[in-house]
Design a protein around this nucleic acid. Sequence first.
DNA 1: CCGACTTTGTGCATGCGTTCACAAGCGGTA
DNA 2: TACCGCTTGTGAACGCATGCACAAAGTCGG
Lengths: 249, 249
Amino acid sequence: MASQRGEGELTTTPLEPADRERARAIPEAAVARLAVYLRVLSGMVDQGVTTISSEELSQAAGVNSAKLRKDLSYIGSYGTRGVGYDVEVLVSHIERILGLTRKHSVAVVGIGNLGHALANYGGFPGRGFPVTALFDVDEDLVGVPVGGIPVNHIEDITTVCAEREVSIGVIATPPPAAQAVCDRLVSAGVQCILNFAPVVLQVPDNVEVRKVDLAVEMQILSFHVARRADEAANDLVNGIGVDGMVIRP
Amino acid sequence: MASQRGEGELTTTPLEPADRERARAIPEAAVARLAVYLRVLSGMVDQGVTTISSEELSQAAGVNSAKLRKDLSYIGSYGTRGVGYDVEVLVSHIERILGLTRKHSVAVVGIGNLGHALANYGGFPGRGFPVTALFDVDEDLVGVPVGGIPVNHIEDITTVCAEREVSIGVIATPPPAAQAVCDRLVSAGVQCILNFAPVVLQVPDNVEVRKVDLAVEMQILSFHVARRADEAANDLVNGIGVDGMVIRP
DNA sequence: CCGACTTTGTGCATGCGTTCACAAGCGGTA
DNA sequence: TACCGCTTGTGAACGCATGCACAAAGTCGG
């Protein structure tokens, strides 16, 4: 049983030593899944569910139950054998490990179609990620409010990010501008970047970049389409029908 | 050296037996990277580069050169020792393996902020992913052209997807609608789905789903912010300055 | 034609992540 | 209190992906 403590009395919410070591050791893949569990659990809370077993939760999250238990074990042992997990307890522990006890101010750079969508996206503020700054090069956009926030000129990134304590920068610019924008965000002290531009960003070691590349996602799907189509053709040649039934045994 | 053949004489472009086996064996992670290499290489072609070494390409793609060579070896041996790779040859082989020799018609469901952005996104058609159908529940949207394509009512998914030979469905609906939309796409014969809704979709085994979850991405970044902040606090306690310099040796 | 130099392709070791399988632990019941 | 059934937590085995290091294979200059 890890040390318990009151929460929310500090904005920075430092982790206990035991948790600190755990956080260091959590595999990247497990972190991504913890976020998914958290979302599923939040839904459970809304439905009035108070207790859940690893089997139920793993099904809802679309993973193997052993994996789920191992993932949860990375953040501590908060289940009750023979019963399951207390939903609210689990939620609060995952939130703590993911650093969601503190708000993370977000800046969106590039207010095109995607930037608009991101600025208006309701999922962010509701989950502790308020969008507090928008930037674009287009002078005509500067001052125009999008999703309730006026657009700033890209030249002002450094000062605006500093004064609004931006901790996450989202790049939604055209590809050629992405690296320059990234550099500016970094020099403004932003250490976490979510990149939607189809460009490989070069950043210093102390900056974390995650990329969302729609074209790559599509191409991965395309690969699977091709492989499937090809296997089907192959199977047909080998006497197996499209429904998996052997037509020429 | 794998068998060479003319390309483009068939819309379905079946793979040679040797390639077929390779495609089956390519690790998922490598497929994602191949898509990145392809994008970088396309940029090289535009710059007039004809030959590139694994070292140069790996740097541009942000990976280790050994990994790059291994990834390329999955699709065959098309390099020249002592010289490097012919850019155009590499492009055409990656395209073939990823199934990009054929167009993949895309349907976007849910024409909200994100759906608009996706429908207008220029990156898709340019890379062989023409958006050919849009759907929404909102009667007021039906018939309105977005990005040049009129919106259809969601009730017509099955027929429209079938007649336009949609092979990839993109879900950009609110979370509660996602599973129902997914089921409809599947019953319309769509086997590949890109899901932007923060929901775990349940699909049959023969359907491939990839998810893009912005909230999860943010939370992963949040985790890193927290870990970093915590390490910094820890280091400070242990007498190491924020710039990594030991202030209390 | 030969030797030096360059770069690919890959066998092998290492490390990480997933899965299995079961002991440990808890609640309920008599 | 003692037993029984259920579920967690985790050691251990396995499999996949990464990175190293080098032989194989090509180019280029003389």
